[in-house]
Design a protein around this nucleic acid. Structure first.
Length: 280
DNA sequence: GCCCAGGAGATGT
DNA sequence: ACATCTCATGGG
């Protein structure tokens, strides 16, 4: 790994909140004030000094700015959704929270594991899979492990995966890996648009409407995707007065109600609800 | 022991 | 199209 210190930008971002506590990615580590991960096979460390964001590793400012969504002005959210006071309060409660654009395969693995699971255990499972099957990088700030590629995961015995604790999701991971490796998705799925991407992703075993929405929002840059989990289902009643008990239908209603940035707002509301800052 | 967690799939109507 | 049941696993 290359040494050096690269200036990434001076935009507002809360690295700890976005990378460690926002439940959109589960594989970052924090050591001595730096945040490390392997993105698309490239190890990187991030840290801030006097409001500026720096990186070290096999990376470049352009791809990191894209990953961290630094080009977006999040202050548009409170103007766009001024009609919903609780929503604006949620946005203002977490300055520097950003919605990532992660490598698609990494979000597929992470969110197949997320089904009927909790955040702490999702993180442990992702770490276990990377430690066991991913490539190891020895960097100047410590060792990092990447996600195993789809071509690796497709060849693993589900029973062996299960020993890591993934439970019944073992075959979902292996079979989805095979379909991805066989080219189910194009290079840039974001260009397909929401509906076509959604119908492709839900062909993957272990990927239903909610998990597909997470992959689209956190991995494809499709910000209209509105994943509805237990927290979002609850808050949709109090904030938007939606009573629909069916989460897939609720997600579609919310996408139609909130438009292109629905998913960005969802992330703030989700975090507000999960941390108890939003009364449900 | 029960209930819950960023649900999905199979089955039945 | 809609509701119901089951599916591992760990923590509260």
């Amino acid at each position: 790994m290359e040494n050096g210190k690269i200036l990434i930008g001076t935009e507002k971002i809360d690295l700890s909140l976005t990378l460690m506590d926002s439940a959109q990615c589960f594989h970052w580590v924090e050591r001595d004030g730096r945040f490390g991960a392997v993105l698309d096979g490239r190890p990187v460390w991030l840290w801030q000094e006097d409001g500026a964001l720096f990186a070290a590793g096999d990376t470049d400012p352009t791809s990191l700015r894209r990953y961290l969504d630094l080009e977006r002005d999040y202050s548009v959210l409170t103007r766009e959704y001024a009609a919903y006071p609780e929503a604006c309060r949620a946005v203002e409660a977490f300055p520097g929270l950003r919605v990532l654009r992660q490598p698609v395969w990494e979000t597929v693995v992470s969110f197949i594991l997320s089904a009927n699971n909790n955040v702490g255990r999702i993180r442990k499972l992702v770490e276990a899979i990377c430690l066991r099957y991913g490539r190891r990088f020895d960097t100047e700030y410590g060792e990092l492990y990447g996600f195993p590629g789809a071509e690796v995961l497709r060849g693993i015995d589900p029973a062996e995966l299960r020993t890591l604790g993934v439970g019944y999701r073992d075959r979902y991971l292996v079979e989805s890996a095979a379909m991805i490796d066989d080219g189910l998705l194009p290079e840039c799925p974001e260009e397909l648009g929401y509906e076509e991407t959604h119908s492709l992703l839900t062909k993957l075993p272990g990927v239903g409407d909610k998990v597909a929405d997470c992959i689209q929002l956190f991995g494809c840059g499709q910000t209209e995707a509105f994943p509805v989990d237990v927290w979002v289902a609850r808050l949709s009643r109090t904030v938007f007065h939606r009573e629909d008990a069916n989460r897939s239908r609720l997600g579609r209603e919310m996408r139609e109600l909130l438009g292109q940035d629905a998913g960005l707002l969802q992330q703030f509301l989700f975090h507000a609800a999960r941390t108890g800052k939003l009364d449900l």
